[in-house]
Design a protein around this nucleic acid. Structure first.
Lengths: 231, 231
DNA sequence: CGCGAGCTTGACGTTGTTCAACTAGAGTGG
DNA sequence: CCACTCTAGTTGAACAACGTCAAGCTCGCG
């Protein structure tokens, strides 16, 4: 993990793609001066559930998974984070703890902004506060969707949900190569690795998807959406 | 449903028990003038998932359930709301829609504040914005807990979670009388009504709880917590 | 060549839902 | 005062969904 300050180009890119874009020029300059970046290798933990939340983090390269760790080794993958996206968990201005862990899925560069600076921005600029509320609320809405799927859909529907999320939200393509393991797919769908494999196989056999190893192709998205709705 | 303005005593009571207490005196006065209250009978819907979110609501009397409605008649009860508590859903400053429904569990009085007024308060006072962020984040943290329980615990653990929530957070007592039906308890625990009944029976038979009709008594809270943790 | 991590498959047992029947109590109307 | 009905609660049996366990596989890497 090597720590460094950010080149200005990178920073401008980042600030235009998340909630930071609502800062004034002066504020951006301030943030620019105090933030720092760290490179993580694939598999490294960016931060760990239960530890103090000292920074708001955002990713400027690579990809990471956000997941809740359960007592008995069962994880729930909540979402994947791509370049430009910010991670400001619900610990902000509450207990200042991380309520989930974040791990790099490939080599990933993360930027760190102290929470105190973030709070300062909100106090200086209530418009920014509103935008941050919007960001938090969108996360919350996504979460409602996840709860609905995990409590009332069965395995086919849950895995369909995961595949559609990967295709529509993460990779923006019907065919994609991923670094996610079968265990990760299972953790995204609230089932065991073995079950995920079996459901993938049944999707393959009915011609809905193609997949070998980590290459996926969705052949029939309509069918997948039907499975999500009905099952 | 009769609509009326709020007596000042009521209002002061309310404002001291939720996020509104962080408003200035002038702001409180402003809110006092524009808010109105409505009485709901047991079973009446206060607002419905999918409809436009025009107001922030809080309860000054009675009790209500917040629940997500699923396509196929399966509901997920997220939480119960008591007097003093505010309901500002994740639709605020995003899509301005209700992402859940709220129904009165007994005769209930609800106060309505226009969302525009709420937004005005945040723009006037960034400290209030921060407090609102805290309120939203606490809701979000509770939600993490719910997701963990529903995805990885089995029926005994899920119903134990519900009973502990009722005892510790809602009624603040080991014995309580509730207006919740068995179906409500099931919807809080992500299972069918029949399963909820069977689990309650098994808890009764092992002496962990007493219950007849709507009177509940938790005899062995430690056992209940162990069930939540282990299964 | 062998080792190890992730992947795959099958057999089996458990968990939880579904369906149908039955019970109890609370109105309601004759 | 007695049927009648309606709703919530309860129980049992059959069945489907899902996890567990154990074994074998594949493929990259030392």
């Amino acid at each position: 993990m090597n720590k460094k300050h950010i080149s200005e180009e990178n920073l401008n890119f980042d600030m235009s793609s998340n909630v930071l874009k609502f800062l004034s020029e002066e504020q951006k300059e301030y943030i620019r001066n105090i933030m720092f970046s760290v490179n993580f290798s694939k598999g490294e933990i960016i931060f760990k559930q239960g530890t103090p939340m000292l920074h708001i983090v955002f990713i400027i390269g690579g990809m990471a998974k956000i997941y809740i760790e359960d007592n008995n080794n069962k994880n729930i993958v909540i979402s994947l984070i791509k370049p430009g996206e910010i991670i400001g968990g619900p610990g902000f201005y509450t207990d200042y703890k991380h309520h989930f862990s974040v791990t790099a899925l490939e080599n990933t560069t993360a930027c760190f902004i102290e929470v105190a600076a973030f709070k300062k921005m909100i106090l200086e600029s209530p418009e920014f506060g509103l935008e941050f509320i919007r960001y938090r609320n969108i996360r919350h809405i996504n979460f409602y969707d996840k709860l609905r799927v995990t409590s009332h859909k069965q395995m086919n529907g849950r895995l369909a949900h995961t595949l559609l999320y990967l295709s529509d939200t993460v990779y923006h393509s019907n065919s994609f190569k991923t670094t996610l393991t079968r265990q990760d797919l299972a953790d995204m769908s609230s089932m065991t690795k073995e079950s995920a494999i079996r459901v993938l196989k049944s999707f393959k056999e009915s011609g809905i998807i193609e997949c070998q190893n980590n290459d996926f192709e969705i052949k029939n998205k309509t069918a997948l959406k039907n499975i999500l709705e009905s099952g």
